[in-house]
């Protein structure tokens, strides 16, 4: 059975006359990492919230279709079950941090306290999550004294510590520096390796391409396609949807360097490999740079 399924999912915010999500259907296997891309306003955040049950649990409005988590309907789950099943990392950590705790450590422990995890296990999990995100050294800091990047990693640690089966991240690294981004992506990759299903909304296409098994492209609330990064970024109509291919793909397209499957490379490593091959076979690409 698919781990996460959306069936004709529709949603409209209260007071809005357009659908934020328009008849979205897909299914995702356990442990898959799914990228969510699209221009601002395309429905990425709404989809994240629907997957995490905040739509329709918290945000009212018109809701149709369903989201199934392990075959169970998210909209019918109680908050306790739902929050053990799926964790959501917000775009802006200021919206996630409770503000009720005086140290980063307590902040990370907040969710676990609420679901009544035994004390010893709670400490172990908080420490593990904080170490994974490289913020254990800031455990005694006041949450709002942390830098943007540290605060975001603290928010992610709070979600990781809950050990949900599914983690939804809504542009989680937009506030981070390159090193912080790398750390967060490495941490997500670790979790992904443990069979956690990941949904990741992100504008950085190089990251999406390097990281995701499949990518969902949204436009005006509709799912345009959900496919492997190579197939999606080899489409020639991306501009129509307000997204760009990774810089490597753009370069390969101009030079018409394709893999055996006829698709353009999407990551640095693949692009390098294909360019090197072309050079060896004397196909005449890029000698001008020697």
């Amino acid at each position: 059975m698919a781990h996460v399924t959306a069936l004709h999912l529709k949603y409209k915010y209260p007071g809005s006359d357009t659908l934020a999500l328009h008849d979205i259907s897909f299914s995702v296997e356990r442990g898959e990492c799914i990228g969510i891309i699209g221009e601002n306003g395309s429905g990425k955040s709404s989809l994240c919230q629907a997957l995490a049950g905040l739509i329709p649990g918290f945000y009212k409005g018109a809701y149709g279709g369903k989201v199934l988590l392990d075959g169970q309907e998210a909209a019918h789950m109680d908050a306790d079950t739902l929050c053990r099943k799926v964790g959501l990392v917000f775009q802006n950590p200021f919206n996630q941090v409770t503000g009720a705790k005086l140290t980063a450590y307590e902040e990370v422990a907040f969710g676990l306290e609420n679901i009544g995890v035994p004390r010893e296990e709670m400490h172990a999990r908080v420490r593990e999550a904080m170490e994974l995100l490289h913020i254990y050294e800031y455990r005694e800091h006041y949450p709002f004294d942390l830098s943007g990047g540290q605060m975001q990693r603290m928010a992610i640690a709070g979600v990781f510590a809950m050990r949900p089966e599914i983690i939804v991240l809504d542009e989680p690294v937009s506030q981070l520096d390159p090193q912080g981004r790398k750390e967060v992506f490495e941490a997500i990759r670790t979790l992904s390796g443990h069979g956690i299903t990941i949904f990741l909304a992100e504008h950085n296409m190089e990251q999406i391409a390097a990281f995701c098994d499949r990518v969902a492209l949204l436009h005006e609330g509709r799912l345009i396609c959900m496919d492997t990064p190579a197939r999606l970024f080899s489409r020639d109509d991306l501009e129509t949807y307000g997204v760009e291919a990774p810089v490597f793909t753009k370069l390969a397209r101009v030079l018409q360097v394709r893999g055996q499957d006829g698709l353009f490379p999407v990551t640095l490593e693949e692009t390098k490999r294909l360019f090197m091959e072309k050079r060896q076979t004397g196909a005449g690409v890029l000698e001008w740079l020697e």
């Binding site: 990774p246 810089v247 370069l251 030079l255 640095l268 740079l289």
Partner: peptide, 22 residues
């Protein structure tokens, strides 16, 4: 990204963006 790719490919020049490389 483009600078990294060019370095990986062993080019000596420093290229900052796709247009420059092309």
């Amino acid at each position: 990204n483009v600078t990294r790719l060019c370095h990986e490919l062993g080019y000596r020049g420093v290229y900052l963006k796709v247009e420059e490389l092309l």
